[in-house]
Amino acid sequence: MLHLRAASINDTHAIAGAIAQLVRAGDIVVLAGEMGAGKTAFAQGFGTAFDIDEPITSPTFTLVHSYDLPRPARGIRTMHHADVYRLERTAELADLALGELAEFGGVVLVEWGDVVEGTFGDHLTVMLDQDPDDEADELALDRARFIEVAGTGASWAGRWDRLKTSLERFAC
């Protein structure tokens, strides 16, 4: 697991961008953390790395937002941004078929996905947490955060060294 600290929103975006450089078509990235921890901010940095210029907003009420990449990269054509916060049952999760979305030229970010992590197979987990020592307002976007990154499965084990190197400057 990597332990990182983002001193600002720009750092959060940069960490997301570095991870985006290493994802492949078919990947699922679970975003964990409380309200205001920076899950959507992470998704925004991730989308920017793929040159998505549409505004990336929280999909809490729409469940999944899909963004076509202006320039497909490494087989990735679409970034799907899901939020399972409102789901109550596993059948609703199955209905979303996030794995199918990933499989077909997609990368899927899943906010609150840690609760159903067992259903995802190989995936990357990004846990975000506010830095309690930052005096900025609790819901302020531009605040310091702790970010932990963990990989599950062989596909991430193979990329781990590169991921570690690219995030070295944020290590804490």
């Binding site: 596993t90 059948a91 199955a94 609150w112 840690d114």
Partner: peptide, 18 residues
């Protein structure tokens, strides 16, 4: 017809913050 795993409640208790 999904023929998939039986439906179950998602265990949000593990995420009390929600």
């Amino acid at each position: 017809v999904y023929l998939r795993a039986p439906d179950a409640k998602i265990n949000w208790a593990t995420r009390a913050a929600r």
